[in-house]
């Protein structure tokens, strides 16, 4: 990875990413503070790239609230698209010091979660469409795998995760889709130490 595949990606400022913070006032004071900071947009827009270390902490706090829910899983809240977004938005891009949300690889509008999931004994399919930064991005499979690993680790086993390339955003859309949703290929990939090391790095910005 000497030459970045996409050297000049479009970057979204962290303050513009969708969060749930504004409508969750009952959060602890620390998180309230973060919410205020985010809503006030104190992060200078000129410092987009250099702010990435700070920025990666903001979604972390959001996903923190998700893991608190996990601990009391008897009273598990229904999963919604925002929660899925929070779990995967802070994954780092394999070649940029930015998160997948900042690069608009994952977008809240491209996460589909069924409304009816009351019956915990029934399986439930979540569809996530990812948008590679460029149409020949050879890292699309790796990014998709990172998202799958993250969600399989965080979500209960009744969820079936389908990861697709957003239509028309990649030249080998079908091939990537097939590989990303092949259970056996994913299982074998997750036993590959080299690949796991890269994925751990991508997930190290998540909590």
């Amino acid at each position: 990875m000497d030459d970045p595949i996409n050297a000049n990606p479009t970057i979204i400022d962290v303050s513009e990413l969708p969060t749930r913070l504004e409508n969750e006032n009952k959060k602890g004071t620390g998180e309230q503070l973060v919410a205020q900071i985010v809503s006030l947009s104190l992060l200078p827009k000129s410092a987009k790239v250099s702010a990435s270390s700070t920025s990666s902490q903001v979604p972390d706090l959001v996903s923190d609230s998700g893991s608190e829910d996990d601990e009391e899983d008897e009273e598990e809240d229904p999963v919604d698209a925002q929660e899925i977004f929070d779990l995967i938005s802070s994954i780092s891009d394999p070649e940029h010091p930015l998160t997948l949300a900042q690069l608009a690889v994952v977008n809240l509008a491209d996460i589909y979660v069924p409304d009816h999931q009351a019956d915990k004994s029934k399986i439930c399919e979540i569809v996530i469409k990812i948008t590679p930064t460029i149409t020949h991005c050879s890292l699309a499979t790796l990014i998709g795998l990172g998202i799958r690993v993250r969600l399989e680790r965080c979500l209960p086993p009744r969820f079936r995760i389908k990861i697709l390339i957003k239509e028309g955003t990649h030249q080998s859309e079908n091939q990537v889709n097939k590989q990303l949703n092949d259970k056996e290929r994913v299982a074998a990939a997750c036993e590959n130490d080299q690949l796991l090391t890269v994925i751990s790095q991508m997930l190290s910005s998540c909590k």
Binding site: K120, S121, K122, I123, P156, P157, R158, K183
Partner: peptide, 8 residues
């Protein structure tokens, strides 16, 4: 249905 719970 659900021959191994929610598992595949």
């Amino acid at each position: 249905e659900s021959c191994h719970g929610v598992f595949e």
